[in-house]
């Protein structure tokens, strides 16, 4: 925003930023893509990163060009749709979602590289939009509990220790954005799977299916073509919800226990 005449703002005159964007453009899943350079001007530091992309797209549409495809939905950090890699970091320089990243994290004159999540399990649909349904299939493989429906049970009937409840809640904050996969040097979905295994595995309701859940979810993530975990920690550092590496240790613990108990993945 350009400060208007008569602006009595306290700080120095606020001017929009001029930025150079290098954006991954790829027409479809099977064609080759490349980085294309664009300029955007007068970007307010108060804009979100997605609003800045909106400005770029308006500009492209006005010029009769194809707008950049990118995913987004809630724009409030809860749906997990909006992931892109910004200057080499999943969701950019702040530990938050791209929609909650603001342009004040950048400086006038900056050059910003914007790429899609890169993993063979996340085929590119177009430009920055990728198909993240592999994560849904991991959930379908075991990330649920089977309970009979009916009237809601009495809340105090099943006590849960505070510590377990807290840890389960922390793990349950995962929004399935896929930043862990994007950031991982092995393109592993371990943190995602581990968050769900932890969330359900710590609660009494998750116990009956605990062994099958972990073997089937891990088998599915291998089938989807994700890499294996080497405990490097890029995932947790990129996670907008700060899911910890502890969840991965818990998944491993559950998996080895389940294999010892004779649980085998469904083929």
């Amino acid at each position: 925003m350009r400060s208007s005449v008569g602006d009595t703002g306290t700080g120095p005159e606020k001017r929009g930023m001029n930025l150079t964007l290098r954006v991954w453009r790829q027409q479809g899943p099977t064609v080759k893509g490349k980085m294309v350079t664009y300029k955007v001007t007068d970007i307010s530091p108060d804009m979100s990163f997605l609003e800045m992309l909106d400005v770029l797209n308006e500009q492209l549409i006005m010029q009769g060009d194809d707008p950049v495809a990118f995913d987004h939905d809630c724009r409030e950090g809860i749906c997990g749709m909006c992931g892109v890699v910004i200057n080499g970091e999943a969701h950019g320089p702040q530990q938050t979602t791209t929609c909650q990243l603001h342009m004040r994290s950048f400086k006038d004159g900056d050059s910003i590289d914007i790429e899609p999540w890169r993993a063979s399990a996340f085929p590119i649909i177009k430009d920055l939009a990728v198909d993240r349904r592999a994560l849904d299939r991991i959930i379908q493989a075991g990330g649920y509990i089977s309970v009979p429906t009916g009237t809601a049970p009495e809340a105090h009937a099943t006590p849960v220790p505070k510590k377990d409840a807290d840890n389960a809640f922390d793990a349950a904050t995962c929004i399935g954005c896929g930043a862990c996969v994007a950031a991982c040097p092995n393109a592993s979905s371990m943190l995602f799977t581990a968050a769900k295994v932890t969330h359900l595995g710590l609660l009494p309701q998750g116990q009956p299916e605990r062994n099958d859940r972990v073997v089937n979810m891990v088998a599915q993530q291998d089938r989807e073509g994700f890499g294996g975990c080497t405990n490097i920690g890029e995932c947790s550092a990129a996670c907008p919800k700060g899911i910890s590496m502890e969840t991965i240790s818990r998944l491993n613990h559950d998996l080895l226990g389940a294999l010892r108990a004779g649980a085998r993945p469904k083929s």
Binding site: G88, A119, N186, S188, G227, N231, I232
Partner: peptide, 28 residues
């Protein structure tokens, strides 16, 4: 696992920044 990881990301990032990894973990 090395092969699995390579297949998991056939196309590399143009720009990739390491945030958490140590030199030791990168050279395993």
């Amino acid at each position: 696992l090395w092969r699995q990881a390579r297949n998991a990301r056939p196309e590399r990032y143009v720009t990739k920044k390491a945030v958490a990894q140590s030199y030791a973990s990168r050279t395993m």
